[in-house]
């Protein structure tokens, strides 16, 4: 297809999905978007007076196929604010194009969110990290295709968006202050995004550590780039569900089920922190 036609089609898809969801919201105006990572979907249970919109009902939306992911928008109250949470994200490794992976983010932006909170389950490449740690994402390294490749959607942002501060410094400071008050220990590091779906080899873990990454995962960065394109402040958090040093052991086995369990254990702390942070916005 001609690139300008593709662009038009994408704009129309975003608009149609936004209009559809808006009708379901009965006048609610979400101000904060939240993306819930693998096993972190339980934050959605804390949202009061919720309206659920299954992705399957929204034209152009794919159905998320990943373990530990459902496929719904949940709109309701959290921390006294109207939020829209993605219970289940779309991953590049599922075989979707970047335009599809980031479609729900563009829709939340079109719905008028003022902040985006992203979360994920990640492998710790930093040797001092432990399973169950919470890490504030202070920066990222993108090894996935850039979601802005293609003609620029000018109504969403500039051709060459700045990435000097992908994660909002003021939100990071607030989160650190709250965590200290609540007695929650936090790491702070750099997230590297790779396509997956195979996990990293020990050599790849060493490579990522050498280039400055503290955690590795298969998501999040495309969503953050799309949010920053539209100048939306982002707060990001990784739950460490796997650690680098273990992968060199001869009897070490990585499995998806264990990762979902580890994420579950840390999800409560993250839910509390997100709720308190949202209450302060």
């Amino acid at each position: 297809m001609d690139t300008s036609l593709k662009n038009l089609a994408q704009s129309q898809l975003i608009k149609a999905a936004t209009d559809f969801i808006q009708k379901k919201l009965q006048g609610r105006q979400p101000v904060i978007g939240i993306v819930l990572g693998s096993g972190l979907g339980k934050l959605a249970d804390e949202i009061t007076d919720p309206i659920a919109v299954p992705y399957g009902e929204v034209e152009g939306f794919p159905v998320s196929t990943a373990i530990g992911h459902k496929g719904n928008f949940i709109v309701g109250n959290l921390g006294g604010k109207c939020v829209i949470a993605m219970q289940g994200r779309i991953h590049y490794y599922e075989g979707y194009e970047m335009a599809t992976v980031t479609l729900p983010i563009r829709v939340m932006i079109a719905l008028g969110i003022k902040y985006l909170f992203v979360s994920n389950a990640a492998g710790g490449t930093n040797l001092s990290y432990h399973v169950g740690d919470l890490m504030i994402i202070k920066d990222h390294i993108n090894m996935l295709p850039n979601p802005l490749i293609g003609p620029n959607l000018d109504e969403f942002g500039p051709r060459f968006p700045d990435m000097t501060r992908p994660y909002d410094p003021a939100l990071i400071r607030k989160a650190e202050a709250l965590a200290e008050k609540e007695g929650i220990a936090l790491q702070k590091g750099v997230y590297v995004a790779v396509s997956g779906p195979c996990y990293e080899t020990p050599a790849e873990y060493r490579y990522f550590r050498a280039i400055g990454a503290d955690a590795v995962g298969m998501s999040t960065v495309p969503e953050v780039i799309i949010a920053r394109h539209s100048n939306i402040p982002v707060f990001g958090m990784s739950v460490i569900t796997d650690v680098a040093h273990a992968t060199d052991d001869e009897d070490y086995v990585t499995d998806g089920e264990a990762i979902v369990k580890a994420a579950d254990a840390a999800a409560d702390k993250m839910t509390l922190l997100f709720t308190k942070l949202i209450a302060e916005l």
Binding site: D139, I141, N142, N146, L148, I149, T164, V190, G212, H229
Partner: peptide
């Protein structure tokens, strides 16, 4: 690839 500019972590990389 761009088109977003590099993050500080990417510059360091």
């Amino acid at each position: 690839t761009g088109p977003s500019y590099e993050t500080p972590a990417e510059y360091k990389f």
